Simulated assay, not measured.
Amino acid sequence: MKEPELKEHPFIMESGQMDNALVQYNVGLAVDHGLIKASSTTLDNVPTFLITGITWSGHEFLDTVRNDGVLTQAKSMAKEKGSKLFDIPFEVVKALVTKAAQSYFLGS
């Protein structure tokens, strides 16, 4: 899939650049896991979310995975178990990222 071209606002994409159902599904997951705040409605019989903010947990998670060393280490830990980091349940991803951050920054 090609990278969407960004307009003036970095979070607005042209329609058709990404599968809307997939985007909405992933936004719903982020809401369910307490990473973002969003209001929900239905447009053309498709559940649709309007993101209204990011939670403290969302900020903490982004700050952690934004570090390339931590993310690389978490991916490596998942690979050792025969999986890809983003193919495992989110709660496990958070735990691996936390463990990787502790190891990366504290050496433990």
Rank of each mutant, 00 (worst) to 15 (best):
E91P: 00
K7G: 14
V97G: 00
D63K: 10
S39A: 08
S76Q: 13
K79R: 15
N67L: 03
K81G: 04
P10E: 11
G28P: 00
G58A: 09
G69K: 13
T72V: 02
N26F: 14
G107L: 07
A78S: 07
E80W: 05
H9C: 07
I51M: 10
Q17E: 15
A30Q: 01
D44T: 13
F86E: 08
A78C: 03
K75V: 03
M1W: 06
L22P: 01
K84M: 07
V97M: 03
S40Y: 01
I36C: 07
L96K: 06
M1R: 11
S57P: 05
V31T: 07
T98S: 14
K84N: 13
E8R: 09
V27S: 00
I88E: 01
V93Y: 03
L29H: 09
L71R: 09
P10H: 11
F105K: 12
S57I: 01
N67E: 14
F61V: 11
S40G: 08
N45M: 11
T64V: 10
S40F: 01
G82F: 08
E91K: 03
G34I: 09
E5N: 06
K81L: 12
A21T: 13
N45K: 14
V70W: 02
G53Q: 11
D19R: 10
T52G: 05
Q73G: 02
I88L: 04
T48F: 02
P10N: 13
L106P: 00
Q102M: 12
T98N: 12
I51V: 15
Q24A: 06
F86C: 02
E5V: 14
K94A: 15
V46P: 00
N45L: 14
E80Y: 11
S103V: 05
V31N: 02
F86T: 10
K94R: 13
G34A: 07
K84F: 06
K2Y: 03
L85S: 08
T52A: 06
S108V: 14
K37L: 12
F90A: 08
T55Q: 04
F61P: 02
L6A: 10
M77W: 05
K94Y: 06
D44N: 15
L85K: 03
Y104S: 12
P4W: 04
E91M: 04
